[in-house]
Computed example of a mutant assay.
Amino acid sequence: MPSPRAMAAIAAVAAALAAVAALTDLLSYGEAAIFLGVAYLVMIARRVDGKAHRIELRVKRHEAALQKVEQQVAALAAKLDDGSAQRQEDLAAILASLGEDRVNAMAQAEELRNLLKAAR
Rank of each mutant, 00 (worst) to 15 (best):
V48P: 02
H62C: 06
A107Q: 11
A107F: 06
N114C: 10
L66F: 11
K60V: 08
D82S: 13
A12G: 07
E63S: 11
A93P: 01
D25R: 03
G99W: 02
A85R: 11
L91S: 11
A22V: 00
M106R: 12
T24R: 00
L66V: 01
N104E: 15
A74Q: 13
A9P: 01
M43Q: 09
V69M: 12
K117S: 10
E100N: 12
K68P: 01
Q67Y: 04
A8K: 06
L36D: 02
I34A: 13
D49W: 11
R5S: 12
A64S: 09
D90L: 14
Q67M: 10
Q86Y: 07
E89C: 02
V38N: 07
A14Q: 06
D81P: 05
F35Q: 01
R61K: 13
V73N: 01
Q108F: 09
M106T: 08
V73C: 07
Q71H: 07
L116R: 15
D49M: 07
N104R: 15
R113C: 07
D25M: 01
M43I: 05
V48L: 15
A75H: 06
R61Q: 15
K79W: 03
I44R: 04
L112M: 13
A85L: 10
G50N: 03
D101Q: 14
A78T: 08
G99H: 07
E100H: 10
A14M: 07
H53I: 07
